[in-house]
Design a protein around this nucleic acid. Structure first.
Lengths: 213, 213
DNA sequence: TAGATTGTTAATCGATTAACAATC
DNA sequence: TAGATTGTTAATCGATTAACAATC
């Protein structure tokens, strides 16, 4: 039973990876079925919210029984697009770029890391796992005959917008931005930011609040 | 004019780092004043929301004038606790741990990286900037005479909960978790997760949605 | 002073939770 | 069948937006 999935709010979407992760844990423990009630205890959302969330995409459960863990995991994988294949390039082969290239789980989920691009000559020529570090000047020629889905920005904030503009021209469909900058992209491009400093500043805020009490 | 700041929602708090970043950009461009209207155009929140957000913490603006950029930046820095000093340790000295230790802006904001801890003997003894990579077995003794505010988990998901438990015992006040795992911590500990795969999966979802249209 | 823009209250919108009939 | 638990509607709660008096 598929639903019109167009109008699902981002609040719901952003919870899906957590369901995905938790269901994987259950599978690893050979748990085959789970109720929204049990899941709510382990995941920290209300049972009501879990049922609401899942029903945005279809009725995956069974009254009186609950949800089949493997089936639900498969459905969420599909909803998240993890059954697809995505060509990915990384701009900036510093520690962060290398960390992402090294993370083999992404490859397993269909995110193919084709290459890293770098301007620092000391890094050009390296291999991260089996991913080559190429000269940034080779970016256009390398991508000329390829369809690139995702461009990952792992540069400093000063270069971020220029790199984004280059990626948009290639074109890429999505930009995953790790630079601590707010980059501008056309509406047609998916932009997802990972602002590490934002996250650290929230910790700082919460620490300060705790001390005030 | 200080307000009782206890009840400010996390929705507001999580926008503060963005204000902070954007105001810094304005200062770098020598912009000295800005209205909520102008800021709304550059930041993408409504002017109304900006004024509401800021007024959770006090009246920083002036009718008919707007906000003094430098003053507002200072206030938000203070609200975020960026005027404090935080002792920080990193567990796991792989690429990600090294990337964080290398990010000198954190040091500038008062997050002092004291050491990385690692079990891989190849990495023990390295220096990242001036931060030493120590044997994980030295963790307790190293921290015995220090007050550690933040512990950063940069291990794989299998080790994450064990490392968290060790950090809690030290104790640390906050855990910044980069492992793709949902770790359990007591309520008194601040936990902030950076789940990179969650972020990538959202991209995957949005790419799939775009293709369906 | 007149114009501009805030701070704040009220209205609206959206997300979460509660309740329960449907049904396995 | 009786018990359990979903799917879904209705109620509540919280966050965002609109409006405007206060005031610089």
């Amino acid at each position: 039973m598929k639903k019109d999935v167009k109008n699902v709010s981002m609040a719901v979407i952003r919870r899906l990876p957590k369901y995905h992760r938790r269901l994987k844990e259950l599978m690893d423990k050979d748990v085959t079925r789970i109720s929204s009630k049990e899941l709510s205890v382990m995941i920290g959302f209300t049972a009501s919210q879990i049922r609401q969330d899942l029903n945005c995409f279809g009725g995956f459960g069974q009254q009186g029984y609950g949800y089949d863990v493997a089936e639900l995991y498969g459905e969420i994988s599909r909803i998240l697009g993890l059954t697809g294949e995505y060509n990915t390039i990384i701009i900036g082969a510093g520690n962060l770029g290398q960390a992402i290239a090294n993370y083999s789980n992404f490859e397993k989920k269909g995110f193919h890391m084709l290459a890293l691009f770098e301007k620092n000559p000391r890094l050009i020529g390296l291999q991260i796992r089996d991913v080559p570090v190429l000269d940034i000047d080779e970016l256009e020629s390398f991508c000329a005959d390829k369809k690139i889905d995702i461009g990952v920005i792992c540069t400093n904030k000063e270069s971020a917008q220029d790199v984004a503009d280059t990626l948009i021209k290639l074109p890429v469909k999505a930009i995953w931005n790790f630079a601590p900058a707010d980059i501008q992209v056309p509406e047609s491009i998916t932009l997802e930011n990972v602002h590490l400093s934002d996250s650290l500043y929230i910790i700082s805020y919460l620490l300060k609040m705790n001390e005030m009490e």
